[in-house]
Design a protein around this nucleic acid. Sequence first.
DNA 1: TGGACGGTTCGGCGCCGGCCGAAGCGTCCC
DNA 2: GGGACGCTTCGGCCGGCGCCGAACCGTCCA
Lengths: 234, 234
Amino acid sequence: MEALAQVAGLLADSTRAAICGALLDGRAWTARELAAHAGVAASTASEHLTRLVEGGLLVEHRQGRHRYVALAGPHVAELLEAMAAFAGPRVPPRGLRAAAVSEAMARGRTCYDHLAGRLGVALKVGLVAAGVLRTGTAGVGNGDLATADLAASDLTITEPGMVWLKELGFEPGNRRLTRPCLDWTERVPHLAGAAGAFLCEVFLDRGWIRRIGTSRAVLLTPEGEQAWKDLGLT
Amino acid sequence: MEALAQVAGLLADSTRAAICGALLDGRAWTARELAAHAGVAASTASEHLTRLVEGGLLVEHRQGRHRYVALAGPHVAELLEAMAAFAGPRVPPRGLRAAAVSEAMARGRTCYDHLAGRLGVALKVGLVAAGVLRTGTAGVGNGDLATADLAASDLTITEPGMVWLKELGFEPGNRRLTRPCLDWTERVPHLAGAAGAFLCEVFLDRGWIRRIGTSRAVLLTPEGEQAWKDLGLT
DNA sequence: TGGACGGTTCGGCGCCGGCCGAAGCGTCCC
DNA sequence: GGGACGCTTCGGCCGGCGCCGAACCGTCCA
């Protein structure tokens, strides 16, 4: 448990947590960007980054006078998601600008390497309806749909679904295919794992979604809406 | 991310982490027991317990002059497991007595409400072989069995498997049926979730396993070995 | 009605860790 | 070469937190 306390200690500081939260977009940030984002001096951020890298949460990549850092991998993102989900639903932010940003994030965003927000949830629901995914709460349940939906977090890919994915260019690797990721804003699981990352990549590569500015928020483009229909999603 | 830092802060202290680790056996402990286990004064433990309860990690149950505390639920156990698994494999303990305890734990133990250790892994493997469980890394893979096995962490219950479980008395509820839980000692996923908890209960109720002293370590009884065969496991 | 016992509250101590600014180092670009 | 820039190192400050023992409160038992 000593080791657990150590990694928890890395995340126990609000500045370091803010840094990790920013990196959840899956991209590499420079030390200065993160310092500004967290609202601390560059020297302070530098020390935090060193600790996070030494702790194995982040990897760094030095390029000229820049120090880029990123999450060390999907396992770190999963850990952060698990903790954030546990920390529970947050109160909605106040203020016009904050609300606008929050609304864009709630509509659709990237969550490390896959899609989240209402867009992410819609994608999962569409894939289930199209028979690509199957949610695995096989039990008869007790009729309580609200809680049953929350618990319905076993996602598996059907055989036709795998064919569909491979036609899009998907190649299964060692990484776990599907993983439910509890959505912060929607409180509903959406699709993560190798398949989720692949679909997010496809959507970005083909211009079906576009990042809003440099934030994690994304927007479904008109081409994306068309493709959505072409793929047989609702 | 502020909330994440807060819950991380609860686990960032080695004494509190030790307390949570002890409670991972799924039972309720008194404040005094936990103080002794963590090696701190009763007053110190009392304050820690208050903080953990207020933070939602623990629930308490006052009975006479005793204060029993336990993990607030499976979701807390899952969080702890995720963090412990992330923290990585530990060096083997030194010393005869420590090694003996460690060996018993590695052989078989409870992990909150399900079975872990070699026994837990054997159970999972047996269930897969018997067709009750299916591991879902559906891809053709790349032939790398070692890593493929680690990634093969999608566990689903087959239709015949569900019939088999129901014959044992299993009733599906809202809780997620299966969940892979990365084993600390074996570094291989085993069966958690509602089905894992149910099987652990069955094994304990029917005397197929027995706790060693008051620790989390468990032993397969002769009746258990017989039942193991009767159930068609290997 | 005592005494033993589990738990809690409170003061006080000491340390650890986060923060900053200043100074220094390496890189890039004019 | 010189200046701008990104980053790091180093002191020093300060607050917070974990720890303990002593005193206290309730419960249980003889």
